[in-house]
């Protein structure tokens, strides 16, 4: 069972603000999801190599070559606020 405290912790990490009611709902829903996933633990995985990536491919590279990127105008086109060619954001210290 996921506790309200755990929901609050995860919500804080995701920068979500939840009402008391929502916390209860999510505690219950998250618990149900985790219980479902926990079914996997019933499988015997002795001797099975851990899987780190879903595709059986390795060592996909590009060479170290510079290509012209996107123009500053284009890259900043969707920024909510721009100043001196930069994204303008609230100060975080």
């Amino acid at each position: 069972m996921i506790s309200i405290r755990e929901v609050e912790h995860v919500a804080l990490l995701a920068r979500l603000s939840l009402s008391e009611k929502e916390k209860e709902i999510f505690a219950e829903q998250l618990s149900t999801i985790l219980d479902y996933i926990n079914k996997l633990n019933e499988l015997d995985t002795d001797g099975v190599e851990p899987l780190y990536h879903i595709l059986p491919i390795y060592n996909i590279f590009r060479e170290d070559e510079v290509k012209t990127g996107t123009s500053r105008e284009d890259i900043l086109a969707n920024a909510p606020q721009v100043e001196e060619g930069q994204y303008k954001v609230p100060k975080i210290i």
């Binding site: 070559e65 990127g69 060619g85």
Partner: peptide
Amino acid sequence: TASKIFCSCSTSFGAEPNTQVCPICS
């Protein structure tokens, strides 16, 4: 390196802000 770790933008130091960027590194 000449280019960034996951895209082909230049790594050179001291360029004008946001002139060595692309959708990957942004």
